[in-house]
Structures are given as structure tokens and as C-alpha cells.
């Protein structure tokens, strides 16, 4: 299989040989196909953040490997910076990393570090701004006078401008209002559709992941609990709830309906599918 990104027996131990020893990642293995959108879910402390910090070489595995296009990213430690340009990582609350005096210069930070010339940088910055829905009028504004949602867009554009092959987003929508969440998620999906970029979306919001992900990776105590299509993951609602997570609100409603003997699929997870299912029931006169 031509996987884009493969994680092989990845282990990461914090504080080895101290009383505070903690295995944050314990034998994690999975692989992601090119262009896939993977949702990574897990409760706090399940190892999600540690996992994604390994994917662009910010952290070094205690044991195990990470392969990008089949090549170990740590094959040549001198070239780890190139890996960081290919695997773009947007941290939680990325707006806290803004530092330049204009939006343009902040977004240009990544491409400039890549050693591109001025024209190439400009092209990429303009493209990235368009992807995240920032008009050219924002170019010369200070990022610090923008609203929270716009600041986050600037920060995301700063990573997109490097044209990564894999884009990892940690809690993309944390702290945004519902409309802002929808818009931002839509922009990321559009970006993926147009560039064919592989996307890993880390979240604790089931509803958000359910709407967009091709497959879902469930992390629990540093290991992979499940890795499957959303329908199959949410079909095992008891297992999800046993590790302290919940299924999407839509799935919850449909499970209750199924419990009452109404003939619906209890593992429906997308709002649109749910609506269609209800409408067809009504047409059939069974509701």
C-alpha cells in the first residue's frame, strides 16, 4: 500500500529512569492514505498531542518509526527541518504564536524560512490568505488588532503557506463560536479538496470529526483503541463511552429511536444522513 504517512510501533516515554516515568505513547501503529482526512479523538492525556508532535519531528520517538512517503523522517536528523515544511502542524490556539507587525509578514515567516525568493513567498501568502478567507485588505493590518477567529485564520494561513503535503490541526475550533467553527472547518475541507492534502484533525468534539473525517483514530491511554470508518467506530457506542468519550449527538438520538423499536440505523453520524433517514421514514408513514 502506498501510504502517505505510516506510524510504526511508536513509543514515547517521558522521564525514563525517574519516579515520574510515563509512557505517553505505547506501541502506536497505523497508516494514512494520501488525501485522506483522519479525525483523531481521545480524552485529555490520551497521547494525542504527543502523537502529532512526533509527526513533524518536534519530538523524537523513544522507539519506533514515522514514515513519510515510505521514508523514515529521522533517517537524516540534519534534514528534519525539511520534514517540518512537508508536514504542517497547527497547534492548539495557534493565534498565540503570531509575532510580526503585519498579517502578510507573519504568514510569510514559514515560506521565508524555506528559503524561497520574494515572488514565490508572495504567491504562497496570497494563496494561503485566500484559502482561509482573508481578503487582500488584511495584508498590511497588524494581526494583533484582529478578532480571535481572524487571528486564528492568520496563524493557519502561516502553515498552509508552506504548502504542506500533510496538514495536522490540533483542536482547530477550540474557543470559537459555532458559526466560526463551521466556516473554518469548511475552509479546511475546501483546501483539502483543491490541493489533495492529507489532513489529520485532532479534536475532542465528536460531532465535528463525524461530519468530515474519512476515518477516525481513537486514542486511549497512549494506544490506538480503534481506527476505522466513522460508521463502524460509532456503531460501538458502548466501547466509546467506556473510555470516557461520547458519540455524536445525532448518533445518540438515533440509538434512542432504535431502542424504541423505530426502524432506523443506530450508527448514523452525519446530520444530513440523519435528516434523510427521518424524511424517508415520514414518507413511508412510519413516523
Amino acid at each position: 500500500m502506498n501510504a502517505k504517512l505510516t506510524v510504526e510501533n511508536l513509543c514515547h516515554v517521558y522521564g525514563e529512569n525517574t519516579p515520574f516515568r510515563l509512557a505517553a505513547l505505547d506501541d502506536v501503529s497505523f497508516s494514512v492514505a494520501p488525501g485522506e482526512l483522519i479525525g483523531i479523538i481521545g480524552h485529555t492525556g490520551s497521547g494525542k498531542s504527543t502523537l502529532i508532535s512526533h509527526m513533524n519531528g518536534l519530538m523524537k520517538p523513544t522507539s519506533g518509526r514515522i514514515l513519510l512517503d515510505g521514508a523514515d523522517i529521522w533517517a537524516d536528523p540534519q534534514k528534519i527541518r525539511d520534514i517540518r515544511f512537508r508536514v504542517g502542524l497547527v497547534f492548539q490556539y495557534p493565534e498565540h504564536q503570531l509575532f510580526e507587525d503585519t498579517v502578510y509578514r507573519d504568514i510569510a515567516f514559514g515560506p521565508t524560512n524555506m528559503g524561497l525568493d520574494e515572488d514565490a513567498v508572495r504567491e504562497r501568502v496570497e494563496e494561503a490568505m485566500e484559502f482561509v478567507g482573508l481578503g487582500p485588505e488584511y495584508r498590511n493590518r497588524s494581526p494583533f488588532e484582529l478578532s480571535g477567529g481572524q487571528k486564528r485564520r492568520v496563524a493557519i494561513a502561516g502553515v498552509i503557506a508552506m504548502r504542506p503535503e500533510v496538514l495536522i490541526l490540533d483542536e482547530l475550533t477550540a474557543g470559537l463560536d459555532p458559526r466560526g467553527c463551521q466556516e473554518l472547518l469548511g475552509e479546511i475541507c475546501e483546501f483539502r479538496r483543491r490541493t489533495g492534502c492529507t489532513v489529520l484533525l485532532v479534536s475532542h468534539s465528536m460531532d465535528e470529526v463525524a461530519e468530515v473525517a474519512d476515518r477516525i483514530l481513537v486514542m486511549n491511554h497512549g494506544h490506538v483503541e480503534m481506527f476505522d470508518a466513522p460508521g463502524k467506530v460509532f456503531a460501538e457506542a458502548e466501547r466509546i463511552e467506556a473510555i470516557g468519550l461520547t458519540v455524536p449527538a445525532v448518533t445518540k438520538v438515533f440509538r434512542l429511536l432504535a431502542d424504541r423499536g423505530i426502524p432506523v440505523n443506530p450508527s448514523i453520524f452525519r446530520r444530513a444522513d440523519a435528516l434523510n433517514a427521518l424524511l424517508s421514514l415520514r414518507k413511508g408513514g412510519r413516523l
Binding site: 508532535s53 513533524n56 518536534l58 527541518r81 517540518r84 515544511f85 504542517g88 502542524l89 497547527v90 497547534f91 495557534p94 498565540h96 504564536q97 515567516f109 514559514g110 524560512n113 524555506m114 502561516g158 502553515v159 508552506m162
Partner: peptide, 9 residues
């Protein structure tokens, strides 16, 4: 970490 992810050295 965030700046390193954007290639800061």
C-alpha cells in the same frame, strides 16, 4: 514548538 513547526531555527 509552534515556530519550529514553521521552520524557525
Amino acid at each position: 514548538s509552534a515556530q519550529k513547526a514553521r521552520g524557525a531555527d
